[in-house]
């Protein structure tokens, strides 16, 4: 039973019409100004970022995007960022800190792009630097996992004070196919992998890996977008308010401790 269930999550999370960062920006934010480029090499359209208002307050919004048709999917590289995307995100986050804007990131990615240029330009370094920087940023950070959150490619935008998953999204060390391929040299065993990986919102909340779950409408977020927007709007407003009231040193200490205690080893 669990097997089919976890597999259904994957199907819902990966649906072509899954709501994307573009939808959420349009529905929940006003005055969005998109910022392009990492100022070093190029613009990476797999990651969308810019400044907007949320309930009137300026915030920085960043999200990975896959695209909703083949043309978009190709243009956005199926949601697999290159190092330039992570570096653009870091540039925007540092600017958010300078101007005291909270940061909201939306995650939906199969992972960072495995390509020759991505390696030549330091994919690993780009992700590592993002996590290092995010852990110290002196503004509240919220991460919403809206679809798939796979590997370091997702975590590189998810070192946040409040990490929340939509109830049908998934978050894992690798895609179930990649997992099965590495572990058993057989990508077709992905269903079995799903079952073992603990990648659903409920599993991850229980394990203390994420801080909250937003229940999706029946049939998934895409089945009833208006209801999804209302639920997310309410949750973001509540947690942004709560995080914004914390003294910055407490916020940084709690952020550190949260990630510090994930994973327990026996002495």
């Amino acid at each position: 039973m669990t097997r089919t269930k976890d597999n259904q999550y994957i199907a819902l999370a990966r649906a072509m019409d899954r709501l994307s960062v573009t939808d959420y920006i349009q529905a929940l934010f006003t005055d969005f100004f998109e910022q392009h480029g990492d100022r070093l090499c190029r613009e990476d359209p797999s990651i969308l970022g810019g400044i907007a208002r949320f309930h009137g307050m300026p915030v920085t919004v960043i999200g990975t995007r896959k695209g909703k048709n083949l043309r978009e999917r190709i243009r956005f590289n199926f949601g697999m960022p290159n190092p330039e995307g992570y570096r653009k995100a870091r540039r925007l986050m540092k600017q958010a800190e300078k101007f005291q804007r909270p940061i909201i990131t939306f995650i939906d990615t199969p992972g960072a792009y495995p390509g020759i240029e991505a390696e030549a330009r330091g994919q690993g370094e780009a992700i590592a630097k993002n996590m290092m920087k995010m852990s110290q940023l002196k503004v509240p950070i919220i991460t919403v996992i809206t679809g798939e959150g796979n590997s370091g490619g997702a975590l590189g935008l998810a070192v946040a004070d409040w990490v929340v998953m939509l109830s049908h999204s998934v978050f894992s060390v690798l895609s179930p196919e990649g997992f099965a391929s590495i572990l058993w040299k057989d990508a077709s065993r992905s269903t079995e992998a799903c079952e073992l990986m603990k990648l659903t919102a409920n599993d991850l909340y229980e394990a203390g890996v994420i801080d909250g779950i937003i229940e999706e409408p029946a049939g998934g977020a895409q089945a009833n977008p208006e209801q999804m927007y209302a639920l997310l709007d309410q949750a973001l407003a509540y947690y942004l308010e709560e995080l914004s009231q914390k003294p910055i040193n407490d916020l940084l200490e709690e952020r550190y401790e949260k990630f510090r205690k994930i994973g327990f080893a026996l002495e």
Partner: peptide
């Protein structure tokens, strides 16, 4: 790379070690 058999807990060590190094560097 990651220890597959420890799944998401393996992934989260990336955030943990990077955060510790950020403090150390600071």
């Amino acid at each position: 790379g990651a220890r597959m058999q420890e799944g998401i807990f393996s992934l989260m060590q990336m955030a943990k070690t990077s955060s510790a190094l950020a403090r150390f560097s600071g």
